[in-house]
Simulated assay, not measured.
Amino acid sequence: MSSLTIVPMHFRDACAFITAHHRHHRPPQGMKFALGVADADGVVGVAVVGRPVARLLDDGLTLEVTRTCTDGTRNANSKLYGAAWRAARALGYRRLISYTEVGESGASLRAAGFAPVAELAPHHGWTRPGRPRRPQDRAVARTRWEITRHPDRTADAEPRPEPVLDGPELRAA
């Protein structure tokens, strides 16, 4: 098994990889940053991270992994999710989200520390009254996953225990 390394990616190169390898999605429209994962032979996967697609989740502290795509290389996807979270944290973001479709296990997300937080019903696109959009070809149920960094936690640490306030310090106050 060869070693996998995270590498920087230009958006156009990430989009070309997605176009060539993704089984059902086109490249996303934009990004905040993109990453690649490579072995000795070259790039074997990419991740594109941007603002959350759902506008109500776009709070300025949240990013979304809008696309990952690999050529099937073992552990490449989980390596991309982990690197995306480290990069997002380094940029000051507190939450990173992503989605899986029904039938996808989420094993790569779990391996990177993400947890499922919502089950979402299928919808047929973004058309809303007063804002028509092109209908989607496919509608599937999804699971939203997230990983967070709370202000009272150090990066990747367990939550600090709450102080015990039942001792003499309470009586002295």
Rank of each mutant, 00 (worst) to 15 (best):
G125W: 10
S98G: 15
P132T: 09
R55G: 03
N77E: 13
V140G: 13
F114D: 06
R74D: 09
T68A: 03
P122F: 11
V37Y: 00
K32Q: 11
L96I: 12
N77V: 05
A115I: 09
L56R: 07
K79G: 00
G92K: 08
T127K: 07
L57W: 05
M31F: 10
H123S: 15
V43H: 06
Y93Q: 07
H124T: 14
Y93I: 06
A47W: 00
V46C: 07
A84C: 08
P135E: 11
T127C: 09
W85R: 08
G45K: 03
G113H: 07
T100I: 12
S98K: 04
A90P: 07
L63E: 02
T66P: 01
H124N: 15
A38Y: 02
R74K: 09
A83H: 00
T100Q: 12
P129M: 06
P151M: 12
V43G: 07
R133D: 10
V49H: 00
A115W: 09
E101H: 15
V53G: 02
L61K: 14
D41I: 07
S98V: 06
V48W: 01
W85I: 08
N77K: 05
A141Y: 13
R110V: 12
R138Y: 15
G36R: 01
G125S: 11
C69D: 04
I97W: 04
V65Y: 01
L120P: 10
L57P: 01
Y93H: 12
I97C: 07
Y81P: 01
A111K: 10
E101Q: 14
R55Y: 02
G82R: 08
R67N: 11
E64V: 03
T143C: 14
G60M: 06
A112S: 10
V117L: 10
I147D: 04
C69E: 02
A38S: 11
G45Q: 06
A40M: 06
T143P: 12
V37T: 04
S78K: 05
G92F: 05
F33T: 02
P52E: 00
S108R: 05
W85Q: 08
L57N: 04
E104Y: 14
A139L: 15
A34S: 09
P116S: 09
D39P: 01
A90S: 14
R144N: 11
M31G: 05
L109T: 07
T73N: 04
G50F: 02
R131I: 07
S105Q: 13
P116D: 09
H124L: 13
A141H: 14
Y81C: 03
A115P: 03
D137Q: 15
A87V: 04
L56A: 06
G50E: 00
A118R: 13
R128F: 01
G82Y: 00
Q136Y: 14
